[in-house]
Design a protein around this nucleic acid. Structure first.
Length: 276
DNA sequence: TCCCAGGACTACT
DNA sequence: AGTAGTCCTGGG
């Protein structure tokens, strides 16, 4: 068991759309990480974490929820650059960018193209159930996301059977390229944001939006960001900017290295607050 | 039963 | 360089 200071917003961090595989329980949340299942429960000033694997639990949790980063400071920096975003930042106070596993994130966001959240979650759960390791935790069964080694052995049809639809071949091809080292997830860490965008978009099934999500959610490249309908709405309402190219230009010029975070705050504000 | 939402690719201009 | 048509699933 691990007890950490409750200094972030657990609920919105987990449910704001960054991750697909979590369960709401009557006491909190269950989240499946790369190598373990964790449960999180809020208890006044603390968050109680239990896990199927207690090894390095504190480091893993701090890394996953990005707890060593000073988000308040970044928020203040963003407000300095542009006061109109203040409401969005105040609304999103405590929201943290989850540091996800690159491999699972890659597959998740390839599946996310032209797809809805429940369907994406369903596919990821099927892949995990069929090919991942079973973990018993607090008397329930969970399945870890399969290893790369296991996934490279699968066929196009194996993926099709996990209800990923026409994306089956994209996943299959990505797996083949990981196997022959044409796609090296590790190498992305050292690339600049624009280089890593170009690199990822070379692969089939990965366009601008999918690549941006992978870089923001798995590599913490905060100057990269996906633009969706909610962000467009915010931009239209606040600045009267509509087309995507102008939105990108404005965002990068205004928020610079924190563009991804600024966009995430706008998204969260527009989607989850009453100001629609 | 049909129709729709949801990104990226392909094959056209 | 720009864009219509297509791919599939789940839900209304």
């Amino acid at each position: 068991m691990l007890k950490i200071k409750n200094n972030f917003d657990l609920k919105s961090t987990i449910t704001c759309g960054q991750i697909f595989r979590y369960t709401k329980t009557d006491y909190g949340f269950i989240v499946i990480l790369k190598d373990r299942v964790i449960s999180l429960r809020e208890d006044k000033d603390y968050i109680i974490v239990n896990s199927s694997n207690e090894n390095n639990l504190k480091e893993i949790i701090f890394d996953y929820f990005d707890l060593n980063r000073d988000y308040d400071k970044i928020g203040k920096e963003i407000i300095k650059k542009d006061s109109k975003i203040k409401d969005a930042i105040n609304f999103s106070k405590g929201l943290r960018m989850i540091h996800q596993d690159p491999f699972e994130t890659l597959i998740s966001y390839i599946i996310s193209q032209n797809n809805r959240v429940p369907s994406i979650a369903n596919s990821l759960n099927l892949i995990s159930k069929n090919y991942g390791t079973k973990v018993i935790f607090e008397n329930n069964e969970y399945y870890l996301f399969p290893s790369i080694e296991k996934m490279v052995t699968l066929t196009v049809n194996d993926f099709r059977n996990c209800k990923v639809g026409f994306r089956d071949k994209y996943i299959y091809e990505a797996m083949q390229k990981i196997a022959n080292k044409e796609l090296n997830l590790e190498s992305i860490k050292d690339m600049s944001s624009s280089d890593s965008l170009k690199y990822l978009m070379k692969f089939k099934g990965i366009g601008m939006k999918v690549a941006s999500c992978i870089l923001l959610f798995a590599y913490q490249k905060f100057d990269v960001y996906p633009i969706d309908t909610w962000v467009k709405k915010f931009m239209k309402d606040c600045y009267n900017i509509e087309d995507e190219k102008s939105i990108r230009e404005f965002t990068l010029n205004t928020y610079r290295e924190y563009s991804g975070l600024a966009i995430q705050y706008m998204f969260n504000y527009k989607r989850n607050s009453n100001d629609k």
